[in-house]
Design a protein around this nucleic acid. Structure first.
Length: 423
RNA sequence: GUGGGUGUAGCUCAGUUGGUUAGAGCGCCGGACUGUGGCUCCGGAGGCCGCGGGUUCAAGUCCCGUUACCCACCCCA
């Protein structure tokens, strides 16, 4: 058999798994402070949850989903992102009934069938929050602030982060704007790449994303959504910006920021860094999706959220020189002179462990010397040495690995003595 | 889906114009007088040289194919 993880997946060995847990701990603590509660939704959904929510024409839906039929012939898809599932779940369980607000966060793997590269995997992890039921601009500013503070708390220097902000308008103003961009593209089709010309029909706003210099130059002259927002959207956007400024969250307005999922309305944002991510630069992003719940057949319910990528965040942390400290794997190592005292050693280790003391011992019959090396490698501050000598008097020797001080301890006093030595 | 790069010990890599028993560093295991770590020294284990063909007296080294990984395009977290 092929002992190899599938393309685009990776085993998170202890060093990385530790970082994963750290990122989740920081998230839980921070998000709770803003009133967000955990939610776990299935890793797979009925396919239409994504096709209706994210949009048929998006790259995600048109070519990146892991879709299959289950044994009963249902079309099932591994979730390519988290928002659609959370909103579906909120609708199913009436979490926002009668104007209630639901503030939820999730963490887990997402799946997209793409060619892997730096910062891009087929199975990748995201943490996200969703604030459902509120259309107030403080909700937008709050969600954006949580994302900013999260990266800041992890240790990414604020100076190396860029918060891009834009408003995509709503059903009142976006369609007309869309048409005007499409018209602009058609008028300049000779100067634009084929891909962008095609976008005029499918998703004109995406032409702003094109990285080709020629297209960028031409698109720089295209009409800006900023100038096309209806009064309500413009006012909302202005409020969001005012609230962010009030909290001293530095944002950069980018009216070409167009995110790739159809459900976004009004506020969209993205946090980028330059170092460590290869050709990628976004470590987190999100936006408002005031029509998504309706799209699923629910009542009109505003909402917004963000998602951030574990893999990319870790790359950014590494580039920033942040290392996640590894705790010592053992406080105490219980070493034995020979196997005649094995039973006593094993029992002693268990007593210490039962007293919440991280304790290790050798399972391979290694020499005492080698047990000390092992203790050192594990970062144990104490080594309890048990041999026939001390056992005869009901004691063992307790060595402090730093000071090299040793003293005899009665077995009966083991937990107390070790606890005291660990301070 | 397209393009480029790379695949040699657990890890990071050397391997001369194809030529005999494939190396280093780190890690791992053991040892350096009597029951004890970090430094140093000594020794040891560990390699289908990604896989399959081909050229050749001879291939880790050349050619073809294939596969995996990496990077980039596309797009996104």
């Amino acid at each position: 058999m092929n002992a190899q993880a599938p393309k685009g997946t990776a085993d998170m060995l202890p060093a990385v798994a530790r970082a994963w847990e750290h990122m989740q701990r920081v998230a839980q603590e921070l998000f709770a402070r803003y009133g967000y509660e955990p939610v776990y939704t299935p890793l797979f959904e009925h396919t239409d949850v994504f096709t209706r929510g994210i949009g048929e024409a998006t790259d995600i839906v048109s070519k990146e989903m892991y879709t299959f039929e289950d044994k009963a012939g249902r079309s099932i898809t591994l979730r390519p992102e988290g928002t659609a599932s959370v909103v579906r779940s909120a609708l199913e369980h009436n979490l926002t009934a009668n104007g209630a607000q639901a503030k939820l966060y999730y963490a887990g793997p997402m799946f997209r069938y793409e060619r892997p590269q730096k910062g891009r995997m087929r199975q990748f992890w995201q943490i996200g929050i969703e604030c459902l039921g509120s259309d107030g601009a403080t909700a937008d500013a709050e969600v954006i602030t949580v994302l900013w503070r999260y990266f800041e708390t992890l240790g990414i220097p604020t100076g190396s982060m860029r918060l891009l902000l834009n408003s995509m308008g709503d059903e009142q103003c976006r369609p007309a704007y869309r048409d005007s961009v499409a018209a602009f593209i058609r008028a300049h089709s000779a100067e634009l790449c084929d891909e962008c010309v095609r976008r005029a029909e499918s998703n004109p706003l995406r032409a702003f994303d094109c990285k080709k210099d020629g297209c960028r130059t031409v698109m720089a002259g295209a009409p800006l959504l900023r100038d096309a927002l209806c009064d309500a959207c413009a006012a909302h956007y202005a409020e969001v910006k005012a609230h962010l400024s009030g909290l001293c969250i530095p944002y950069i307005e980018d009216s070409t920021l167009v995110r790739g999922l159809d459900y976004y309305t009004r506020t969209v944002f993205e946090i980028q860094v330059d170092a460590g991510l290869g050709s990628q630069n976004a470590i987190g992003g999100g936006g408002r999706y005031d029509r998504l719940m309706q799209e699923y057949g629910g009542p009109p319910t505003p909402g917004l959220g963000f998602a951030l990528g574990f893999e990319r965040t870790l790359l950014a942390l590494e580039a920033a020189g942040v290392d996640i400290p590894a705790p010592p794997r053992a406080d105490v190592f219980v070493a034995r002179v020979d196997d005649s005292v094995l039973a006593e050693v094993f029992a002693l280790a268990q007593r210490l462990r039962d007293a919440s003391i991280a304790t290790e011992l050798d399972h391979q019959g290694r020499s005492l010397k080698s047990q000390f090396k092992q203790a050192d490698r594990l970062g144990a501050r104490l080594v309890a040495v048990v041999g026939p000598d001390e056992l005869a008097s009901g004691e063992f020797t307790l060595r402090d690995m730093e000071t090299k001080q040793e003293h005899r301890v009665a077995f009966a006093e083991a937990v107390a003595a070790v606890t005291a030595s660990l301070g």
